[in-house]
Design a protein around this nucleic acid. Structure first.
Length: 569
RNA sequence: GGGCCUGUAGCUCAAUUGGUUAGAGCAGAGCGCUCAUAACGCUUUGGUUGGGGGUUCGAGUCCCUCCGGGCCUACCA
């Protein structure tokens, strides 16, 4: 029994996330958290909404609401969707929480004390009409290189040349279209990450077991060109955490806020405080402070590859630089992207399936199974409706659902809705137990290693073993000559359903609960010894035939959905 | 431009890090079963591992080169 801290990258507040976002962090993190809990470990699984930054302000403006109100509403929406997908966060916090305000300001003060903050004066594009400084990508104009008229301030989408906004010909604000942009001087705080390069590099080098995707991105940032650069950690925005040095004002920084990527990871820690304050637990420091017990904690982060630099470099720089005993991450599981039907998911064009729409169409387990069993681990993966339909129908409806159905219905018709008595295990049953032991060990090993696709395949193989056994044992034939043996066979079948419900819980929690309810079992104890675990449902135990566990997706539905989610929301 | 990842059966993916005859699932074909959600089981077809060259007793794996796909490149988050 160990203690596991698990965090999923925190989703940005502006809008509902698509399935690619879901499978890139929250869903695999949930799988892992559920598995570890099932194995009896103590788990703290945290997530939150990431609420600061320019896009949040603009989205609120577009919605005609004060940004605080907008974020509160969207937080609620995201929380409900997380519940809908059965994401088992111990707390779903907010990066705008008072706890995070305080902690972020605290970290800034500590970093300043350590001499890791410097002030930098620079000039940035300001739009008087919008009343704000414009991030590079909110400026468009004609590309000086190729003449493309919608080149963004950071890069031209046509010729891919990297640009500086001042290079653009006829620059305009993408927010208002204003063209009267001007360069204004502004002062910002920079985190001196460059001073910490060697420490960070040494730390990354010590993580030989991390996914290549994680370490290669980190190393690229550490060593590319001039190496790790200092990074601005403040912005000229209204919505955010005010720049303060702990409890004190920060002279010259009035009216500025911390950069969202500075405060967002700190929310992982603040979230534990929110968790405690919400009355869901106690002693948050035990999870986060190595001087308060967190040395015994194994901390695992889940994220999409775009988040890797912030989790391997910026956030560790914040923690190490503070010179305080905060817990550093032990393992970073990163993911590639999920594409949609030969292209990318697109939030702006409404291409692909979004979390709310997914749940309107089918229950969470259907999505959880497909997404996890096709997680983009080694490569970008692709969602297609045909693949989704065939996976769900074959794996869930035929292999697992139908197994539960055939066993319970046969039992009902021959013995009634009660675990039948009689007969004793023979060679075939012993062989099955041995086979299952091997497959279970494999499943467990893959879950421990967070090899998600492989874990799904192993679980499926365990389901298949039940069908193979049933076919060989053929209780429908045995029953005619030897009802006692048939009773034994079907008793084992019923116990297999229970076993499957327990083992499948991390992937498909609702189906697991439904099957256990039908079988009349409350517990979901992870198997210790399959010989005894497969005899837990004893003769005389009552059950009911479950409703269809997973229904099939018809061709017509699939076609309709294909059409519906092709684009333009 | 630079860096990283990637290309394996019609489709989605493996291959214990250089070691026998490259394996699974789906789809296809054949057979069996009749308890079950027209479900299940068994057998089987299918590969010049993107092309070319090299190193090696031995290459899907290492090197070079060409072709294709993807990501990152620091002010979106």
């Amino acid at each position: 029994m160990a203690r596991h801290l698990i965090t999923s990258a925190i989703p940005y507040i502006n809008g509902i996330k698509h399935l690619g976002n879901l499978v890139g962090s929250q869903l695999p993190a949930d799988l892992y958290a559920r598995y570890l809990r099932a194995r009896g470990h103590e788990v703290l699984f945290l997530c939150a909404t990431d609420e600061h930054g320019t896009p949040a302000e603009l989205a609120a403006k577009k919605a005609g609401k004060p940004v605080a109100e907008y974020c509160a509403e969207m937080h609620k929406v995201q929380e409900e969707l997380a519940n809908g997908f059965r994401l088992s966060f111990d707390h779903f916090g907010r990066s705008s929480s008072p706890q995070n305000h305080k902690l972020t300001q605290h970290f800034a003060a500590k970093l300043d004390e350590a001499g890791l903050i410097r002030e930098v004066s620079e000039t940035q594009m300001y739009s008087p009409e919008d009343g704000r400084f414009l991030p590079d990508r909110y400026i468009e104009g004609t590309c000086p290189n190729c003449g493309f008229d919608s080149a963004r301030g950071d890069q031209c989408d046509n010729c891919t040349k990297q640009l500086d906004p001042v290079d653009l010909i006829n620059p305009r604000s993408t927010i208002s279209g204003a063209t009267n942009l001007e360069m204004r001087e502004t002062k910002h705080l920079f985190l001196c990450q460059s001073q910490m390069r060697d420490r960070l590099a040494e730390w990354i080098d010590s993580k030989a077991d991390w996914p290549v995707l994680t370490t290669s991105i980190a190393k690229k940032w550490l060593f590319d060109g001039d190496g790790l650069q200092d990074r601005g950690i403040t912005r000229d925005l209204d919505w955010g955490i005010p720049v303060r040095k702990g409890d004190e004002d920060w002279p010259g920084m009035e009216g500025k806020v911390f950069y969202v990527w500075f405060d967002a990871p700190i929310e992982y820690i603040a979230c534990a405080q929110e968790w405690e304050e919400a009355g869901k637990g106690s002693d948050w420091q035990r999870w986060w402070r190595t001087d308060a017990g967190a040395d015994d904690v194994r901390y695992t982060q889940f994220m999409g590859k775009d988040n890797v630099p912030f989790h391997t470099l910026s956030f560790p720089a914040t923690i190490l630089g503070s010179a305080e005993p905060w817990k550093l991450v032990d393992y970073i599981k990163s993911f590639n992207y999920l594409n949609y039907e030969g292209g990318q998911f697109s939030t702006s064009r409404g291409r692909g399936v979004f979390m709310d729409q997914a749940l309107e169409i089918l229950p969470a387990d259907y999505w959880r199974w497909w997404l996890l069993s096709h997680a983009p681990e080694s490569n970008d993966a692709e969602f297609t409706w045909e693949n989704f339909q065939s996976s769900v129908n074959k794996d869930l409806a035929d292999v697992l659902g139908n197994f539960a159905s055939r066993v319970t219905k046969f039992c009902r018709s021959k013995f009634g809705e009660v675990v039948p008595e009689g007969g004793a295990w023979g060679e075939r049953e012993s062989a099955l137990v041995e086979e299952l032991k091997g497959k279970l060990a494999e499943y467990e090993a893959q879950m421990e290693a967070m090899e998600i696709r492989k874990a799904a395949a192993s679980l499926r193989a365990i389901w298949v073993a039940g069908n193979e056994y049933l076919q060989e044992a053929a209780p429908w034939a045995t029953f005619k000559e030897d009802p006692d043996t048939a009773a034994m066979q079907i008793r084992l079948g019923l116990n297999l359903i229970r076993l499957y419900a327990v083992l499948s819980q991390p992937f498909i929690p609702d189906a697991s609960a439904q099957l256990r309810e039908a079988l009349g079992v409350q517990e979901a104890e992870w198997p210790q010894d399959l010989e005894t675990d497969l005899q837990r449902l004893a003769p005389g135990h009552a059950f009911t035939v479950p409703d269809v566990t997973f229904r099939k997706i018809a061709d017509a539905e699939r076609e309709e959905w294909q059409e519906r989610f092709a684009g333009v929301r």
